[in-house]
C-alpha cells in the first residue's frame, strides 16, 4: 500500500503561462508553473467539538495522523478520495469548506472496522465517519443519504416491534429511496429460489411478511426507547447549535 495517499496541490491551484518573460528571461510553459497562494479565513473553530458530540465521534481528539485508517480502508481501495485520515485532519483544524468537497462520499463507509482495528490511538475512525455523516445531515449540507435512510427504516422497525422482518424492511427502504422493487437482478434471484424451495417454506416466508415477527410485551420497551431517542436527538442538535426539533419528518 503506498504511503503517498493524497495530492495536496489541486490542478486548479496551479498557474502556468504559455508565454511569459520575466526580466528578459523566457520562462514560457512549464518553467512558469506557480502554485497559487491559498488563504483560509473561514475556520469553524467548533468543528471538532461538534463531531465529538455525536455518537462515534467522541475520540477524534486522540488522532495523531499516522494514516493507518486510510491505509487499511476498504472504501479507499475503491475510491482514493475516500480518506478518513484527511477528513479527521480537516475536522480537527476546522476546515469546514474543505471537508464539504467530499460531503457526498463520506456516508459510503462500510463499517468493516479495519481502521478501528489498525488505529494505534483508539480514535475509532469508523465511529468518526458515522458522526461526520450525521453532522453533514444535521447541518443541512446533504440530503439524507441512502445508508441513513436504511438505518432509519431498520431502527424504526426494531423500536416498534423488537424484531426485523427483512421483506418488509426492503419494501419500505425501496419506497423511501424511490427505487423500483422489480430490479432485474432481484427478479432473477427470486425466480431461482421459488423454483427450488418447498411450498411450505415459501408459505412460511410469505406469512412472515403479513404477520410480522415481533417481541412480545414490547410496549414499555418501545416507549422507553422512543423517549430516549427523542432526548438524544435534542441533545445532538443542541450541541450543533440547532433548534431542538427538526422541521423535516419522514413518517
Amino acid at each position: 500500500m503506498p504511503i503517498h495517499e493524497k495530492h495536496l496541490i489541486r490542478p486548479e491551484n496551479l498557474v502556468r503561462n504559455d508565454k511569459l518573460a520575466i526580466e528578459g528571461v523566457d520562462v514560457s510553459g512549464d518553467w512558469s508553473t506557480f502554485i497559487q497562494t491559498r488563504v483560509i479565513t473561514d475556520y469553524n473553530e467548533a468543528m471538532q467539538e461538534e463531531i465529538a458530540a455525536l455518537p462515534g465521534g467522541e475520540f477524534i481528539h486522540r488522532c495523531w495522523q499516522c494514516g493507518s485508517c486510510t491505509n487499511s480502508c476498504t472504501v479507499n481501495m475503491l475510491n482514493p478520495d475516500f480518506n478518513p485520515r484527511y477528513w479527521i485532519y480537516l475536522i480537527r483544524l476546522g476546515m469546514e469548506q474543505e471537508l464539504l468537497r467530499d460531503k457526498d462520499i463520506i456516508w459510503q463507509c462500510v463499517s468493516c472496522n479495519k481502521c478501528t482495528y489498525a488505529c494505534p490511538r483508539d480514535v475509532v475512525p469508523e465511529g468518526v465517519m458515522k458522526a461526520t455523516a450525521h453532522w453533514l445531515e444535521l447541518k443541512g449540507y446533504v440530503p439524507e443519504k441512502p445508508s441513513m435512510i436504511f438505518d432509519d427504516v431498520f431502527s424504526e422497525q426494531v423500536f416498534a416491534k423488537g424484531k426485523i422482518e427483512e421483506g418488509r424492511l426492503m419494501r419500505k427502504f425501496f419506497v423511501r429511496t424511490q427505487q423500483k422493487l422489480a430490479q432485474p437482478w432481484l427478479i432473477v434471484m427470486v425466480k431461482g429460489l421459488v423454483s427450488r424451495l418447498p411450498v411450505t417454506l415459501l408459505m412460511r416466508l410469505g406469512l412472515a411478511g403479513v404477520v410480522h415477527p415481533r417481541t412480545r410485551n414490547w410496549g414499555r420497551t418501545r416507549d422507553a426507547i422512543n423517549e430516549y431517542v427523542g432526548e438524544q436527538n435534542a441533545k445532538h442538535r443542541g450541541a450543533l447549535g440547532l433548534p431542538a426539533q427538526s422541521t423535516e419528518s419522514h413518517s
Binding site: F154, S155, V158
Partner: peptide
C-alpha cells in the same frame, strides 16, 4: 440492534 441501530446510537 445490528449495525443500523448502532449507527443511530451505539
Amino acid at each position: 440492534g445490528a449495525m443500523e441501530v448502532k449507527n443511530v446510537d451505539p
